[in-house]
């Protein structure tokens, strides 16, 4: 437990260093002094362009998306008292990206740059509300995860339908981007449109942390010690919907990040859901920045999609956690 105090500062420093490293690495590697110079507005015009318009926004987008998913995952796991709950597994990301695709498909996005993040967030909120309603009716977490799987499959099916009917290859490739998840070519503008939702969702989730600790005891005992269950459900769902929706608006559906990070963090924070929130967010952000560096340096004809790489790492971890789980909790 002595390392706990250094967990958050350590992860924060590591995140900053990794984002900096992401600015160094690329098709034309830049040495650290040139990146530094570009950061502070001096240096060559080309370097400034590469750092400020391409690499930094991309790395920041990866970090923010990861952090939002890690935080949402940790919070949903606390709410549902299950280490397998996560926006991706529960179908929240898929529903959000479906809603985003709809807005692209029908050209609504041309109305305002806010349409896309709003559509993604509405999709995410619809899915999280449905799950929360189901959570009130059923005490079985397995049922809940199955509902999530169903939701995810349904969103996938509708997405396939849209692709099937896609009017031209451009919209098709757009949709593939949403389905597979990527932070390539993100700009500060796009980050700016997602950020307000991401920040408000995160604030709500952090504020519900204490209630998540209380839920460790189960719902009956948690209300016994003074938790308002209804508000706890509403705010966790709202916060996770906002944060996940914002992350989908920025990068499409990226799964499993929200499972891996909290799972690794929990032993270091005494398995307390509240104390796992911030470190999980940082670690998940860090993980996606590293994965995105991987995406950029792995030599492939088509650039790998970030969501694909994240799932390649995350899905086996999901299976591993699921097989190691003791049956007593359900």
């Amino acid at each position: 437990m002595s390392g706990t105090r250094w967990l958050v500062p350590g992860l924060a420093v590591a995140s900053v260093l990794t984002i900096f490293a992401a600015c160094l690495i690329g098709s034309t590697p830049l040495p650290a002094d040139r990146v530094f110079a570009a950061f502070f507005g001096s240096g060559e015009v080309g370097d400034r362009l590469v750092v400020w318009s391409i690499r930094l926004p991309r790395a920041l987008a990866a970090f923010l998306v990861g952090a939002a998913l890690g935080l949402s995952g940790a919070a949903l796991q606390g709410l549902l008292r299950n280490p397998l709950a996560e926006p991706g597994v529960l179908g929240v990301s898929a529903t959000a990206s479906l809603a985003a695709t709809f807005s692209l498909y029908y050209g609504l996005v041309s109305l305002s740059p806010w349409i896309l993040p709003l559509a993604a967030i509405l999709g995410a909120l619809a899915a999280t509300s449905l799950l929360a309603l189901a959570a009130i009716r059923t005490r079985s977490v397995v049922t809940l995860i199955l509902i999530g799987v169903g939701l995810s499959s349904f969103a996938g099916a509708v997405m396939s339908l849209l692709m099937n009917l896609a009017p031209n290859p451009f919209s098709l490739s757009d949709m593939i981007n949403w389905m597979l998840g990527s932070v390539a070519n993100r700009s500060f503008d796009e980050i700016g449109f997602a950020l307000p939702f991401l920040i408000s969702g995160s604030i709500i989730l952090l504020a519900t942390g204490r209630g998540l600790s209380a839920l460790t005891l189960g719902e009956e005992a948690a209300s016994g010690i003074g938790l308002n269950l209804r508000n706890q459900r509403i705010f966790t769902v709202l916060g996770a919907g906002l944060a996940t929706g914002a992350s989908v608006a920025l990068a499409g559906a990226i799964g499993f990040v929200g499972i891996v990070a909290p799972h690794l963090i929990r032993p270091f924070v005494g398995y307390d859901p509240a104390r796992s929130l911030v470190p999980s967010a940082l670690l998940a952000g860090l993980f996606l920045v590293v994965a995105d560096i991987g995406v950029r340096i792995i030599p492939a004809d088509n650039e790998l999609k970030l969501g694909v790489v994240a799932a390649l790492i995350g899905a086996p971890v999901f299976v591993w956690i699921a097989t190691r789980r003791r049956a007593v909790h359900d």
């Binding site: 008292r81 460790t216 005891l217 189960g218 005992a221 005494g270 398995y271 307390d272 859901p273 909790h329």
Partner: peptide, 8 residues
């Protein structure tokens, strides 16, 4: 009821 997590 059993705890959801193996807390301290």
């Amino acid at each position: 009821r059993p705890l959801a997590w193996p807390n301290i």
